[in-house]
Design a protein around this nucleic acid. Sequence first.
DNA 1: TTGTAGGCGTTATCAC
DNA 2: GTGATAACGCCTACAA
Lengths: 332, 332
Amino acid sequence: MTQEQIATIYDVARTAEVSMATVSRVVNGNTNVKESTRQRVLDAIDQLNYRPNAIARGLASKRTTTIGVIIPTITNTYFSGIARGVDDIASMYQYDVIIANSDNDEDKELKIIESLLSKQVDGIIYLGKILSKKISKKLKEARVPVVLSGTLDHDNELASVNIDYKKAAYQTTVQLLKKNKRVAIVPSAMTELESKLRLEGYKQALKEAGIGFDKELVFEGNMTFEDGLALSKKMKKEKVQAAIVAYDVVAVGLLHGLLEQGITLPKDFEIVAGANSLLTLYCFPALTSVNQPLYDMGAIAMRMLTKLIHKEEVKENQIILEHEIVKRDSTK
Amino acid sequence: MTQEQIATIYDVARTAEVSMATVSRVVNGNTNVKESTRQRVLDAIDQLNYRPNAIARGLASKRTTTIGVIIPTITNTYFSGIARGVDDIASMYQYDVIIANSDNDEDKELKIIESLLSKQVDGIIYLGKILSKKISKKLKEARVPVVLSGTLDHDNELASVNIDYKKAAYQTTVQLLKKNKRVAIVPSAMTELESKLRLEGYKQALKEAGIGFDKELVFEGNMTFEDGLALSKKMKKEKVQAAIVAYDVVAVGLLHGLLEQGITLPKDFEIVAGANSLLTLYCFPALTSVNQPLYDMGAIAMRMLTKLIHKEEVKENQIILEHEIVKRDSTK
DNA sequence: TTGTAGGCGTTATCAC
DNA sequence: GTGATAACGCCTACAA
């Protein structure tokens, strides 16, 4: 065997003394092959160290067994938690995953989508949170299936996997109102549908508790650790006693800020984080958090994508997973 | 234009009334095209909404503008920090990135490598830390360039980007010995070359300080948050006063454990973390840390990979980046 | 059960 | 400058 020269299906066919078609059958697990010739082919494959060229296969079959994941940033434990679920199921189904960071930048997202489609991915998973009309349109026009995870579509057209954000916010608010009067809510950008739902749940709980809605207690647009740090001062000014924070990283920043001010949790302040990413566990005191099952959100999204790719029936394409509130040390 | 039917280069050629070759030239920025025909082609591309099929291109050109990244797990902020650097430079150079989680499992890594090669990636970046002989051999045999980041090769054959782990451990130890007698070191698995280097630096500092090496102060094999938690008790038993911890997540676990025991940092205990991933910033008190420039380690590795792919000259393939020790609140 | 041959959508090498 | 035309490596009817 001429080393260094990569063996093709043709080489295998020749050394096994069969046709390319037969080799292809063996490689692809087609059962209509006599056992003896199958063995001969396998031997040849082994001998030549043959590995099918996935690119050629993709061109011929129009399937690449590659999917794309659009993620704001991989360094955020919330998104990487979901991505990990996606990746595990993907590899279980033999898909490779192209991950692209978008930084929530619409132009970048557009480019990424173009690039993924030009690479003929079999499907796309979008974790962007902020799904603009433009991106939504683009995704709907794509000739491959798309599943959102941790992201809502305004008209529920795209398949998605989420938790019930409204309910989660409602429950959290109810709980915090038991021991506090001034409970703040910290949604991320209000362009996220999720933020609107959270706010609805928050308001509902207030109403049922007979407490008036005070818009000074809504601290919107906070998405980073630094935002959280800065929040601690603003909250002091507003005499806030407890906070519901959508982004874990913001909650941790807030915690930091409070601790720096010498405030003791949960005695003088309560925090409930929104996603239960690993961060909530790593800080001290560990944060009570709504448990978004990140891994599952990714895994189930990916599983759904495989079904859509294979045109299997999907009963419900708007999946809502159960959440719970994990009690840790930032609440009484 | 017949909607739903994806336009090929042939369609463009026909509507622009040129040959495929010319379209290809225009698409690939070849200058040998008359301006008027170029415009005609661009119009046709626009009209037909043509996007080149990267798979077909890959088959014909033998380049896929896709690279593979092998990562233990994306949810660890150390690795995602590096991966983010890789991704940014990759997208700058128009490469897509296939990320595959290996969980440090050799069999998985082997499969991943096979899969990446079959997908004809143009190069591979390996972030695995523990580079086994088998994997190392496999990577060296690959027909595409490979760059390690945050990982050392036993014989320095594979290109790599790292910091000077020995020096970092030495400096850290020197510093901690100023105010402490019993300074522990917490390397990860001793199968990592990095761990050996760290230990060397540690020993050197001890020697220079005239302090005997006590192997009870080496807590090896700790790699998770839970490991760190458990460490806090073991360290108490050994009357440890300060610890140098390779993995940030372990350092955070240790911090947690100490705080739970009511120990005050840095007064009663000092910690220096090893990587300066975001985690060290998020905990309270924030951890003093050796600053491994994670983003740069990824970015530079990727940049080097592009050079290797294009067969450009690379002067030095064992790159050592500068580190520093970022003073935060876990040291005096 | 196995082989033949025509794509798949590009790029690249020649000619013209 | 531009156009044919053969690869690229595999899949998939269709035949046999």
